[in-house]
């Protein structure tokens, strides 16, 4: 812990930039995946509510 904070001034902003970008990229991917999933699940539900079924749905009852 000590070694980390003692050395903060030296180039710490570069390290911070990299880790922040990593967080942004990971968070961005996750957000896109979840938002798109929500949209598609909603759309599927709407289509099924409108009475349109997939061919396989018939078999399942």
């Amino acid at each position: 812990m000590d070694s980390f904070f003692a050395d903060l001034p030296r180039h710490a902003e570069y390290v911070a930039a990299v880790y922040l970008m990593a967080v942004a990229v990971f968070g961005g991917l996750l957000t896109v995946a979840l938002v798109v999933k929500k949209q598609r699940v909603k759309e599927l539900a709407e289509l099924e509510a409108a009475g349109i079924r997939r061919r396989s749905a018939k078999k399942q009852g």
Binding site: K37, R40, E43, A50, I52, R54
Partner: peptide, 15 residues
């Protein structure tokens, strides 16, 4: 997500 998208596409075409 991609599987959902393909199902939506198939259902729309069916409709």
């Amino acid at each position: 997500n991609e599987i959902y998208a393909r199902r939506i596409r198939a259902m729309r075409m069916r409709a």
